[in-house]
Design a protein around this nucleic acid. Structure first.
Lengths: 161, 161
DNA sequence: ATTGAAACTTGATCGTT
DNA sequence: AACGATCAAGTTTCAAT
């Protein structure tokens, strides 16, 4: 993970594609070199696969629900309970957090009925004590690629420190 | 957005690529047809562009911070304040929510110092009254493609209803 | 590890149904 | 709108550094 890798990753984020051609065009590193680096990054697990940025509204998953979930304490329960939450259909993100709240869960569903069953699914998990959910009115930002939030120079600075 | 579109979108999510070839291989729809459909989906804004699934730990952005942010009420403030939050370097998601909390903000940063400046940045926004942040200890699940949380049959059912 | 050029695979186009 | 055949464009490989 040197500066060249970060440049490539940042370009992928910015251009929205991992095409060696496009990356060469954007930052001047020959496409065969880019290809070589991309393979390294794949092998070392830094990047996983291609995917698509989908407009949830247009696809019909217009409801976003953010839930705080409290669970009993127990050996490795943040793993087992976390997995159970992750397995609920519609659940996109599961964070296990420090402090009073145990989990933060974000889910996308199509309609009100799905919201009901979602919360029921959470609360039917044995170790779960309590949940509290917020409806999202507007998604101001939802950037699938976190690197896109940074300037390339900032990234190179902070990540090579 | 008929069943065929949903099959294609679900395959993109599952296979992690939008390659017409791979999609034909997976569900048998000829790649020229897939190509045609993908163009439609692009034009209608359902899908935006390719991107990459990046391992934040490996890339060095190992700290995730979930913040609740309360703001003053004002004409269209959820837009303007939301944008200001979205512009803070490192901020990945900004949700404007119903109920007591106004915004939920998720950010990814490299180190403790960045956490400090992140929260400072939030609180330096004029309309912001109060913030409360949680550290994420473990990211149990963070699926960039929401469609990947569903079975194809479920999707076809719920989205064509 | 890098790269220019060659080989090959794939995505995009076209014409027909 | 669907799709098989064709073409153009891209990715991947290779040999030399």
């Amino acid at each position: 993970m040197d500066e060249k890798d970060i440049q490539i990753l940042a370009t992928i984020a910015r251009e929205g594609t991992a095409s060696p051609d496009k990356i060469e065009e954007a930052i001047g590193i020959p496409k065969s070199t880019v290809h070589y680096r991309l393979n390294q990054l794949r092998e070392s697990g830094v990047i996983e696969n291609d995917l698509y940025d989908i407009d949830l509204e247009k696809v019909g998953l217009s409801i976003t629900l953010i839930s705080e979930v409290w669970a009993e304490f127990g050996e490795g329960y943040h793993d087992t309970v976390g997995e159970k939450l992750a397995d609920v259909e519609g659940v996109n993100q599961v964070y296990f957090t420090m402090g009073a709240t145990d989990f933060v869960v974000i889910a996308h569903v199509a309609n009100r009925e799905s919201v009901e069953s979602l919360v029921e699914d959470y609360e039917s998990i044995d170790e779960i004590e309590r949940t509290s959910s917020k409806f999202v009115i507007t998604t101001v930002k939802d950037e699938p690629n976190p690197l896109n939030d940074f300037e390339i120079e900032t990234l190179v600075e902070t990540l090579t420190e």
